[in-house]
Simulated scan of single mutants.
Amino acid sequence: MGGDRVLIDRFLEMMAAEAGAARNTVAAYRTDLSLASETLGGALAEADAAAIGRLADGWATLAKSTVARKASALRRFYAFLAEEGLRADDPGSALPRPGTSRPLPKTLSAGDIEAMFAAIDARIARVPPDRNDLRLSALFELLYGSGLRATELVSLPRGAIVSDRPYLILKGKGGRERMVPLSDRARAAVVRWRAHVPAASPWLFPSGKSHLSRMRLYQIVRALAGEAGISPDRISPHVLRHAFATHLLEGGADLRALQAMLGHADIATTEIYTHVDAWRLVRLVSELHPLIDAGRTRP
């Protein structure tokens, strides 16, 4: 179970740091995932749909609520592995859904994003300037402007972003590369911040002997939300990545292009990860459906 244990620990760290999961939820997920790993002989992370189906068969005598919790833990674990590029697929669809529905992911409105940018601008305008405000600006521009994963962001090399190149090449699991777009704003923010990073640092966002931790990034983002008048419970680095995807999709981005930018191996992950608000769907049908005719009246 050695390999499983490491990945379970990474997943639970994400749940606590980025998703803001309660301590009891994290403990329950650890128990469920550890038992599942033990049942599968330490091969939970690489289990295929057939193995997961056999695992679920063993839950037949359990209460529906217990099955729902176990399935949720595994489903989120596999979604995390796919999101992090540790699996090329997401086998979570093989898990039972006993009368439960998967909630839509959290996201933010354009107004929320504008409020946080305004809070950053107010910080940067202070005299004398604080280098941590420049770091915050670079972090936020890359989280929302490019949709980077938290791990990808905090571990960026110092020279990863070039001022005259409007994209970033990231390498994931198995050597797979993807191109991430960089806005002019993001590149300018990085240039301003990098001037305060020691030339000998291997990291763009150094901290101590390593780079900024995911937990610290989570705390920074929540603190910014509070300054902007947004409930910290609504936000995390992952929510900003989701807002990046959602707002692009609402703006007309192609789902395949979005898949490439997010680094999803399976288009199904992109479809689950993004959503379009119900009001937009209603508007599209009302305005664009070929049977709609403003001048037609019923006989």
Score class of each variant (00 low, 15 high):
residue 184 D to F: 10
residue 164 D to V: 14
residue 161 I to M: 11
residue 80 F to Q: 00
residue 100 T to A: 04
residue 283 R to Y: 14
residue 202 P to S: 04
residue 256 R to Q: 11
residue 282 V to Q: 14
residue 60 A to W: 00
residue 153 L to I: 02
residue 292 I to V: 15
residue 267 I to D: 11
residue 127 V to Q: 05
residue 240 L to D: 00
residue 121 D to P: 05
residue 196 H to T: 13
residue 130 D to H: 06
residue 66 T to V: 01
residue 131 R to H: 07
residue 31 T to G: 14
residue 145 G to E: 00
residue 204 L to P: 05
residue 89 D to A: 05
residue 158 R to E: 10
residue 214 R to L: 00
residue 136 L to D: 05
residue 205 F to D: 01
residue 262 L to N: 10
residue 69 R to L: 03
residue 213 S to V: 00
residue 116 M to D: 01
residue 7 L to Y: 06
residue 58 G to C: 07
residue 71 A to C: 04
residue 204 L to T: 00
residue 272 I to P: 05
residue 191 V to H: 02
residue 187 R to A: 09
residue 41 G to R: 08
residue 123 R to I: 01
residue 8 I to G: 02
residue 122 A to E: 07
residue 15 M to H: 01
residue 39 T to P: 01
residue 92 G to S: 11
residue 297 T to V: 15
residue 202 P to D: 07
residue 114 E to D: 13
residue 118 A to I: 04
residue 103 P to Y: 10
residue 230 I to R: 00
residue 27 A to Q: 10
residue 265 A to S: 14
residue 51 A to N: 11
residue 144 Y to A: 03
residue 200 A to S: 10
residue 125 A to Q: 08
residue 2 G to H: 08
residue 71 A to V: 07
residue 64 K to W: 09
residue 61 T to P: 04
residue 260 A to W: 09
residue 20 G to C: 04
residue 9 D to H: 10
residue 250 E to A: 13
residue 72 S to G: 10
residue 193 W to Q: 03
residue 40 L to H: 12
residue 124 I to M: 09
residue 8 I to H: 03
residue 31 T to Y: 14
residue 107 T to L: 06
residue 230 I to Q: 01
residue 68 A to Q: 03
residue 67 V to T: 07
residue 136 L to E: 06
residue 67 V to K: 01
residue 220 I to H: 05
residue 22 A to S: 13
residue 139 L to D: 00
residue 183 S to W: 01
residue 182 L to Q: 08
residue 89 D to M: 02
residue 16 A to K: 03
residue 207 S to A: 10
residue 192 R to Q: 12
residue 12 L to P: 02
residue 38 E to Q: 13
residue 64 K to P: 06
residue 6 V to E: 02
residue 42 G to N: 09
residue 187 R to K: 11
residue 223 A to Y: 12
residue 205 F to H: 01
residue 100 T to K: 11
residue 98 P to L: 07
residue 172 G to R: 13
residue 193 W to S: 07
residue 264 H to T: 12
residue 167 Y to F: 15
residue 4 D to W: 09
residue 2 G to E: 12
residue 152 E to M: 07
residue 16 A to Q: 07
residue 269 T to K: 11
residue 159 G to F: 08
residue 272 I to K: 12
residue 260 A to L: 14
residue 61 T to V: 10
residue 153 L to Y: 05
residue 150 A to N: 05
residue 280 R to Y: 14
residue 296 R to M: 15
residue 252 G to R: 11
residue 25 T to I: 05
residue 60 A to S: 12
residue 224 L to C: 04
residue 24 N to A: 11
residue 163 S to Q: 14
residue 162 V to N: 13
residue 67 V to C: 01
residue 217 L to Y: 04
